[in-house]
Every structure is written in C-alpha cells, then in structure tokens.
Write a protein that binds this DNA or RNA. Structure first.
Lengths: 93, 93
DNA sequence: CAGTATCCAATTCGATACTG
DNA sequence: CAGTATCGAATTGGATACTG
C-alpha cells in the first residue's frame, strides 16, 4: 500500500474517471492549484504503479494522453465510497 | 479532503476498526514501525478531524483509550473497497 | 503508561525559468 | 504542448532522551 499517497493522486484519478482520456494540459486545467512539476511527478508515479497509462502521439505539436489502466478503473468503488464518506462526514455550509 | 493523508492514518483507522477501543500502547504494538511521535501526532490529527475520539481515565498509571467516532466507523466501506482493490491489483507472489 | 521535547535528515512542494 | 531543471521553503519523519 501507499500507492495513493500524495496530495494529488486521488484528484488525478478522479478526473480521469470523470473523463478519459485526458491530455496533460487538460488535467492541468482540471486541477487548478497543481503545478506542472507535481502533476507530471504524480502521473509518473501512478504510471509506475500501474494505475495510469501514458499514450504518446508522435505529432507536432506534441500530444500525450493519459488514461486509467484496468487497475485504475478498479478503484472506482473505493473512490465512490470515499466520496460518499466525505460528503456525509465533512459537511460544508 | 486530505483528511486521510499521512502514512499512518489509514493504518490507525484500520486497527481501530479491527478492535475498539485501543490503548495507546496497543496501537503502538499493532503498528510496528511507527514511532511514538508519529502515532500521537496522527492520532491528534484524526481527533481534530472528528474521526477518532480520545478517552482519558484519570487513573494511575495513566489509561487512555482511542475509538472511532461515527464518522470514523463510516469509513468502513471505503476502507474495505480500498483493501479489496489492493488485494486484486497489487498481487504479491 | 502515555505521552513531551529536541534535534536532525529526508522528503515534498511551489515558484520560476527554460526546451524540443 | 508537454514537459525538464533548479532552487529554496516548508513539511514530514525518525532517533533519542526525558516526564507526571
């Protein structure tokens, strides 16, 4: 375990679950306060953990897409459960 | 969100779900590589987040127990889902 | 037993600038 | 567009010693 550590991984996976695939700049826009550095760092980590797949289209300008692997998609129930919990237990006005 | 960050929180909650309540030294033994400092630190954070309740028995020697609040118990489905996912997606030989 | 207190190393994170 | 490089600040984590 420990695969889901880091402030951004859950958010990244969440946004990939909402819409797939996503381009790098797409994710950048979807997650407002993340820096490029953190985004790429966490994406690489998720890739290394087998949760995210990186697809490069050798075009100009560069085109890279990210999508969830099967293992990544399999996180859906867990993320939903976490989301529900957060909605119930961390109510905001 | 971000309540579950930190290396130990999920472990602490897990052990509290397994058996409640737990004394401090209990948790210390249950989580081998945690230091006292980190354990108390994370427990305080969980307490502040309303996930864990701390109960002090004014005895000698001191006696303190920790248990999950309702919000903490409500994490059960999420933790189970994560556990299942880990079992499926991070297979070890 | 259930913590505190210190000190120090390692890691994380953000801002900024630059590149193919 | 999709990164890489570098720096420094902040946070986190561990070891150790001590206390009511």
């Amino acid at each position: 375990m420990g695969i889901l550590e880091g402030r951004w991984k859950l958010l990244i996976i969440h946004h990939l679950l909402v819409r797939q695939p996503r381009r790098f700049s797409d994710l950048e826009r979807a997650i407002p306060r993340v820096t490029q550095k953190m985004l790429i760092q966490q994406l690489r980590a998720l890739e290394a953990d087998g949760v995210v797949r990186r697809i490069v289209y050798p075009e100009l300008p560069p085109h890279v897409e990210y999508e969830l692997t099967e293992a990544g998609v399999a996180l859906t129930p867990a993320l939903n459960a976490l989301h529900d919990w957060a909605a119930d237990s961390c109510p905001g006005p």
